[in-house]
Structures are given as C-alpha cells and as structure tokens.
Nucleic acid binder design. Structure first.
Length: 419
RNA sequence: GGAGGGCUCGCCUAGUGGCCGAUGGCGCCGGUCUUGAAAACCGGUGAGGCGUUACGCGUCUCCGUGGGUUCGAAUCCCACGCCCUCCGCCA
C-alpha cells in the first residue's frame, strides 16, 4: 500500500508512476476520491458520536423528569449514530479496496516499458565456448544427479528427484549461501512453508499471483512460493528497533503451480513446482532502502562469483516489476544449451509498500512509530544447478566443480558420468 | 478426534453496564540523591485516523474478530478466530 499522505500532497507523482508501468492512472484517482469520501463520512460520524457520548454522561448524572427528557433525545441520536457508523465503515472498506489496487511508486531511473525493456547494467565473466553443449538434464542424467522421469512417475510433470551428486550439489550450494549470509550478519532462518491466509495476503501474493499459489483447502493454509512470505510476515504488527537493519536468510522449499506456463520450459528443472531456495530479507529504515538494495545485489553477485558462472545484471522495466517493488534487479546466468541468459536471482526494493500492508514499523529518533522498508533477494536456488552444470561441462559429459563447492562434494573437483 | 482454560496498551496484570481509553507491577525515559553507578524516592510512558497548530491541543476509533442488546458495552448475549493444557490417535 502506498503512502496516502504523499498521495494527497502529490497525486501527479503517482499518475506518472502508473504511466511508467504502462498502467491506468484511474486507480490513483479512484483512491483520491475514496480517501476524500472517507474523510467526510468519518467526520460526520465523529460529530454525532461525540454528541451521543456527552449526552450519555448527562444521563448518568441526571434523574427524574430531566432523565426522561434526555433519554428521549438520545434515543433519536442513537439511530443517527448507527447510520453514520455504517456509512463510515463502508467508506473505510472502499478506501482499503482502492488502496490495495494502487501499486508501489516506481523508483527514479527505472526503465519504462515491459518485459523486454530491461536495461543491462553489466555483464560479468567470460562466456565459455562449448561445442555442442549438452543441456543440464542430459548432463544431470549422465551424472545420475537429476531424475525427471521418476519425478513425473511419482508426482507428475515439473517434478524431479535430485540424487547422488545432484543432491549434494544442491545442499552444498544452499549451505554455502547460508554461510555467506551468516558472514555478512544475516540471521539464518528455516521458515514455515505453509502459511495462513493473512501472511499470504499481506505479502500480496493473493492478488495477481493467486493462481500461482497452492492452497490446502482442508486446513486453509497456503504453500509458500518463497520464504519471503514467512519472513515478511515474521514481524507483522510489530514495532522494531531498526537502528541497524534486520537481515534474514531464509531457507525453505518453495511451491509454485506454474499455472499458465504450460509448454514453457518443460524440460529439466528450470521451471518446476517445487524447489529449494535461500532468500535474503531485510527490514530497514526507508532512507536506507536504496543502499540496502545494492547490498543485496552485491551478495548475489558474490555467490555467482563463487560458482564461477558468467552472468549479467539487469534493471527490470517498470511494467515488469510486480505491484510491491519500486525497483527490481535480476541476475541472469549464462545457459550454454540455450545460448542465452536466464534469471537466477531477483532482488526487489519494496520500500514501505509491503510493510505498510503488514503493519511493520520502527521507532524513529523521536520515539514515533514509522513504517519500515522491506527488501528481498535470492541468494541461491535449485535452478542454479543448471548454469553450474552447463558452464562447467566437459566434452565427455563430466562436470568441473567450482572450487567453493568442492568441500561439499567430498573434495571432488570433477564429477564423472556413470554411464 | 474428545475435554477444559484463556485472549486487556512492550511483558505481566486489575477491571461484571455510565466515575474506564482503561488499574497496578516490571521494563523504558527524565529528575532528586551520589565523585560515578546501583538502590531508594518523585514524575512521565499504548496505537491509529481526522482537525488545528506547530510539537501542544481538540475529537473519534481500538480491550482477539464480527454481529446483537442498550440512551450508553472491556463488562451482558450470539457466532467465529487464535493460543494453551490434558486425553486419544499417529510419527
């Protein structure tokens, strides 16, 4: 949710943001109207309610005829109060609906346009020249590391088993991510992957993402698509001390229905219903959010350097941000079999948008509660196995192990195919 | 699955219809005392909206949530949610 005070002061700022996203400015004007409506209706209610309270006090003190007369008046007033209260409640609800419909303000400098209008900030590492590169599934099957056939047999399409070195590779990668996070002062966390509707709702995943989310109807719980959900809701309805940012690295399994992506990236483990991820999440003061965002990006790049994979950093265009982000920076790793870059991390600066919704606040120097800022970013996921396997492949189907990962694979520097 | 207990302003707690937006303790902040600190004592200390104004004042809302009764509800009634304990069942 956006800052209503800022909206009143400068509605044009928000209309401009909408245009940058390629979305209608109507929601902004709807919100302005709902806000004004609510204020006038609320004032009316408060006036009659104040009268009712003061008369009520007189009733308590009076007796006899005086009391009877007062009671007659207050009785009439009670009906008015009820009407006014109903109107005020309705106006509140209308305001909330309108409020939820407006996405976050876009940060200055974010490229305009949609999915294809990102700006490449930099490319890092040399693209390897590999003749007839095998893709990650072929390599993974050779190493007996990835088994999608049995994944499908047991659970359906877009499921897989990681076995042997595949399992070790993932565990090693994620452990390495957690270690790095701890070194940088993040609190390692293992988070619930089932959450209540409020948590899902509060992080905004029941909006346009609703069809992506698995729901357990019998228990009214949702499977999270990222530990961001649990981490963001962790401090909901709390007032924090944010003299320094609070940083978490959450490890969880993630679940996504991938509805509407039928036929897209069906091979291997690029786009799957279940994967594991270490996700960074920060709560900080709004004025620190921009720096914090770059810090999260630096963490991601540090990880990518450790796995020795070429990548590029892109500044995602306004139309592709999602409603809570004010700016989103993705790292895309080179995938030799596809001869293109594919997303492996994504870090978003949600400013106060998400925290306002979840009611996460902090105390400023004057002791007043203020809305916090939240940011998130990927540190490692199952998907990383793809560029790791493919970029380090050798003609015989073996795969070199990046130095940083070797300790997690019993010191091996090469994984040999078993067939 | 069965039975019971609970939900009040950071934590604990008082409060059975108007004197309650709410008691007391802990914590925290300020002061007195002290070379300094602790102790003791004194004072202050929930959140949000709106208005006014300049940091004070006014007003409304909030005692798990939603309804109801009443001129008036933390308090009475109904429904729901959540937490805890015990029993059963299963890891």
């Amino acid at each position: 949710m956006i800052d209503l005070r800022l909206l009143r002061e400068d509605p044009e700022l928000f209309r401009a943001g909408q245009r940058l996203r390629g979305e209608s400015t109507e929601v902004v004007d709807d919100l302005l109207r709902a806000d004004e409506e609510r204020r006038s209706v609320t004032q009316r209610f408060e006036a009659v309610r104040a009268e009712q309270k003061s008369l009520g006090k007189q009733v308590a003190k009076s007796s006899g005829d005086e009391r009877a007369a007062l009671l007659a008046r207050t009785k009439e007033l009670a009906a008015e109060v009820k009407t006014a209260e109903t109107a005020a409640t309705e106006a509140d609800q209308a305001l909330r609906r309108a409020h939820l419909a407006v996405p976050n303000l876009v940060q200055d400098g974010v490229p305009a346009g949609g999915e294809d209008d990102f700006v490449v900030l930099r490319e890092v590492g040399d693209i390897p020249s590999i003749e007839n590169p095998k893709d990650h599934l072929e390599l993974g099957e050779g190493l007996r590391a990835i088994d999608t056939e049995r994944g499908a047999k047991v659970s359906g399409s877009r499921f897989y088993f990681l076995t042997g070195v595949g399992a070790l590779l993932q565990l090693g990668l994620l452990q390495m991510a957690v270690q790095q996070a701890v070194e940088h002062g993040f609190t390692p966390s293992i988070t619930p992957s089932l959450v209540r509707p409020e948590a899902m709702e509060g992080t905004g995943f029941l909006g346009s993402h609703a069809s992506e989310v698995y729901r357990l109807e019998a228990d009214d719980l949702f499977l999270v698509g990222t530990s961001e959900v649990a981490l963001a809701a962790y401090h909901s309805n709390e007032i924090l001390d944010l003299t320094t940012p609070e940083r978490f690295a959450g490890w969880s399994t993630c679940y996504r229905r991938e509805a509407g992506s039928h036929g897209k990236d069906v091979r291997g483990i690029l786009r799957v219903h279940q994967f594991d991820k270490v996700e960074m999440f920060s709560f900080c003061r709004p004025e620190e959010a921009t720096d914090e965002h770059l810090r999260l990006l630096a963490m991601e790049e540090e990880m990518l350097a450790k796995v020795e994979v070429p990548y590029r950093v892109i500044d995602v265009a306004a139309g592709d941000l999602g409603s809570s982000a004010s700016r989103k920076l993705d790292c895309e790793a080179w995938v030799p079999s596809q001869q293109r870059y594919r997303e492996v991390t994504s870090t978003s600066n949600c400013t106060t948008f998400q925290a306002r919704r979840l009611n996460v606040r902090y105390r400023d120097e004057d002791g007043r509660p203020q809305t916090a800022a939240t940011l998130n970013g990927t540190l490692a996921t199952t998907r990383w196995l793809i560029p790791i396997l493919e970029n380090h492949q050798q003609p015989d189907g073996s795969v070199r192990v990046p130095k940083a990962l070797q300790p997690f694979l019993g010191g091996r520097d090469v994984l040999e195919p078993t067939r």
